[in-house]
């Protein structure tokens, strides 16, 4: 607690323009409305530790059905860490420990009855760096349905691949070269291929961790359009370092600061009249 305050005082004195009331620099409770009715994902008292170091502090957050929620905040504030608790990607990190309650609808994500393989089929993920498998475009998309046994026949598989690529807005560009390596595509195409791969197993939620940070503005614009389209069918959690992107694609925005959830509000409200001083400082570019 005191470390947080000190850190901010240092920032304030350095910049000489940030004089805030002390009670506003201490994150006591999340301001705005972090909780919704009938959520898709419910996180309560969520904490994450890497060894002895705590990266996420007692976060309460709901993510609604068919909602696009953006997570913003300075780097190292725990956005990715929180995101990865939702599909238990943190399980693969040595020394990582998660506490709190996480529900995907009625199912306890960290409960003993939850199978991680099934969880990850229900919660898809798109990573920061496009990471297609070093296989053909077709095989990249077909892989998920294959291992989960979603296609009964070759025809069905072809259909799934085609539909996924269409929904990812990539079909027109690759339909004539499905057998060529996915790694031969451009960065933006690769990322759309990864999105096609993620939606090929019809997940309920798609997690996106800075999906456009490695892409040029045009490719970024395409992905943003795509996110808007996908929101009709999926719940999307997107981490982004671009506030414009958050403003363009999301319904609600969550602002993280040093492992704490500072403010969650309607995106428009966050970017026009933020409730918390820290949020305001961040979106006005005073630190980040």
């Amino acid at each position: 607690m005191s470390a947080l305050t000190m850190n901010l005082t240092a920032t304030a004195s350095e910049e000489n323009s940030f004089d805030s009331a002390p009670e506003q620099t201490v994150v006591e409770d999340t301001v705005g409305f972090p909780l919704v009715d009938d959520p898709k994902i419910r996180a309560r008292n969520a904490s994450v530790f890497y060894g002895d170091k705590q990266a996420i502090f007692n976060i309460d957050l709901d993510i609604g059905k068919h909602e696009v929620i953006a997570m913003i905040g300075p780097s190292g504030c725990g956005k990715s860490t929180f995101l990865r608790t939702i599909n238990r990607m943190n399980d693969t990190v040595d020394g990582c420990r998660v506490s709190g309650e996480f529900l995907l609808e009625e199912d306890n994500i960290y409960g003993s009855k939850m199978d991680v393989v099934e969880l990850r089929a229900r919660v898809g993920m798109v990573f920061q760096k496009p990471n297609p498998f070093p296989k053909s475009i077709f095989d990249n998309v077909a892989y998920g349905p294959k291992i989960h046994g979603l296609a009964g026949s070759r025809v069905e598989l072809d259909e799934i691949v085609e539909n996924s690529l269409k929904r990812a807005g990539l079909w027109a560009e690759v339909k004539d070269r499905l057998q060529q390596p996915g790694t031969g595509l451009s960065g933006g195409q690769q990322q759309r291929l990864c999105i096609a791969r993620a939606i090929s197993i019809s997940p309920e939620v798609i997690l996106m961790d800075e999906p456009c940070s490695a892409l040029d503005p045009i490719a970024t614009a395409r992905i943003e359009e795509l996110i808007a389209e996908l929101a009709e069918n999926y719940t999307i959690v997107i981490v982004t370092h671009s506030m414009q992107q958050a403003a363009r694609v999301s319904h609600r925005t969550a602002y993280f600061h040093l492992g704490k959830l500072v403010e969650v509000n309607e995106t428009e409200k966050v970017f026009t009249t933020p409730e918390h001083k820290l949020t305001e400082a961040y979106i006005t570019g005073r630190f980040g």
């Binding site: 599909n87 990607m89 693969t92 991680v116 393989v117 099934e118 969880l119 990850r120 089929a121 898809g124 993920m125 990573f127 990471n131 297609p132 498998f133 892989y143 998920g144 291992i147 989960h148 990864c194 791969r197 993620a198 197993i201």
Partner: peptide
Amino acid sequence: EAGIGIGAS
């Protein structure tokens, strides 16, 4: 990560 993310064991 890609493999794990799509639900491969």
